[in-house]
Amino acid sequence: MPQEAGVTRLLIAWSNGEASAAEPLMDAVYVELRRLARGYLRRERADHSLPATALVHEAYVKLVDQRRVRWQNRAQFFAIASQVMRRLLVDHARARDASKRGAAVTVSIENVDRTADGRPADILALDLALEKLARVDARQARLVELRFFGGLTVDEAAEVLDVAAITVKRDWAMARTWLYRELGGAA
């Protein structure tokens, strides 16, 4: 209960513009999301795949006293959580990658005569591409983070980014096109 009060206060404070609440809030959310994610991703009997946004939703329910916050705060929470979620997934992907490096290629059932072009697309590649996008258009990169990692709707994203919904729609169309092209999808 005390923890719940703390995060709620931080969230309220942060949405009221208090920048210094951002760091501790992120930390608290990170700890909770990581705890939740660990439980699902590494559990021996993880016989299902849990979507990132459901984790974020669960973290929200666990961390925030919903009596006290407005729905705009909720959008703010998801905004923070989406950033954290992205960081979590990237860290996780890097850890998996590191453990895989240097492992010998095992014998395949059929011999392969030729390899094809193309890079494996995954969270790491997207993360890099997003960073690149952020240098050109920070708001579009943020939007991708909110919608893809946080699962925010157009309206919620508009609230967080403080722009009109139509702007969100346009930005979204362009950002995803840019990223698609960046990740090598175009002909």
Partner: peptide, 12 residues
């Protein structure tokens, strides 16, 4: 029985 899909940070 880890789900291979979720091992690499990509979640369905």
């Amino acid at each position: 029985v880890d789900d291979p899909i979720t091992q690499h940070g990509t979640i369905v």
